[in-house]
């Protein structure tokens, strides 16, 4: 039997005006039909930092993440405000395709296209009107270097992406996202299908990428959150319970529910 915790007792940090933010949500609610999956999420994400979203399965962290680039459109009803560059991108009039080019996403299972490695990266670029061959080639190299994959695949760019290992495929998916030169990168448990060595590589890549991008990562793995993130938000049953700097979250959690979760004595 799961322990009961009060949803009233939360510890969510806010940022002063001096901190430049990548994104911010206000009163974000998500409903799957009658199921209220996310309650009142007010979170702000500082620029060029990695923010980790942690919590048990079903806590709503993936649901929340998928709302940020409108991937829940047609799946769930999302209400509330999602601020990005002073625009509420949760408005129905917003061009979601444009938004997704600025807010990229990497999924739990590596999902490269059934195309060559090169084509995986250039396909969406070309669809967005970038036709110059030299420029496309440049983007391929730049993004593969960014995802720390270039040295492993530079001689086999025309080979099928499906012939890569799981870890390489996931880094290719990261490369594919950053090739669009987004602002924000959303990662939904990017390492849960990978072995420890591939996981380390992806984490190193993320730490490198935060210099250029603002990253929000959902993870089941608390060590991973501790290793890579600067800010950490803890989700419980569709509520944001605690949002503090990662150091605070793991050494000095503010409320009982986070204390129990971090200590592993949850329920």
């Amino acid at each position: 039997m799961l322990k009961q915790y009060s949803f009233e007792e939360t510890a969510v940090q806010t940022f002063d005006e001096k901190t430049s933010l990548a994104m911010k949500t206000e009163n974000l609610q998500v409903f799957y039909g009658a199921n209220h999956a996310m309650h009142d999420a007010d979170l702000a994400f500082p620029k060029n930092q990695i923010t980790a979203l942690i919590g048990a399965s079903g806590s709503g962290k993936s649901t929340y993440l998928r709302s940020l680039n409108r991937m829940n459109d047609g799946i769930a009803t999302v209400t509330g405000k999602i601020w990005y560059h002073n625009v509420d991108i949760n408005e129905p009039t917003v061009n979601i395709y444009e938004i997704r080019r600025h807010i990229g996403m990497v999924f739990q299972r590596p999902n490269p296209f059934a195309k060559s490695i090169r084509e995986n990266i250039v396909y969406a670029l070309r669809a967005n009107g970038l036709k110059n061959k030299a420029e496309l080639e440049e983007r391929v190299e730049k993004s593969l270097r960014g995802a720390a994959l270039w040295d492993e695949v530079k001689d086999s760019l025309d080979k099928s992406a499906l012939s890569l290992s799981g870890g390489q495929q996931q880094r290719l998916c990261i490369a594919r996202s950053i090739a669009m030169e987004p602002d924000v990168l959303l990662l939904d448990e990017p390492c849960s299908a990978l072995d420890p060595i591939s996981t380390v590589k992806v984490e190193e890549t993320l730490l490198e990428l935060q210099k250029k991008y603002s990253i929000i990562i959902v993870t089941h793995n608390m060590q991973q959150a501790a290793r890579v993130s600067s800010q950490c938000a803890f989700f419980h049953l569709g509520h944001v319970m605690e949002y503090t700097p990662t150091g605070t979250m793991f050494s000095n959690p503010q409320i009982p529910v986070t204390q129990d979760y971090i200590a592993g004595s949850f329920g």
Partner: peptide, 20 residues
């Protein structure tokens, strides 16, 4: 997941369907 990959890159539903 292939559809999600296409959509997350800002491709339209149609482009995702035909190209991927």
């Amino acid at each position: 997941s292939q559809r999600e990959a296409g959509l997350s890159l800002g491709l339209s539903k149609w482009k995702t369907e035909i190209g991927i």
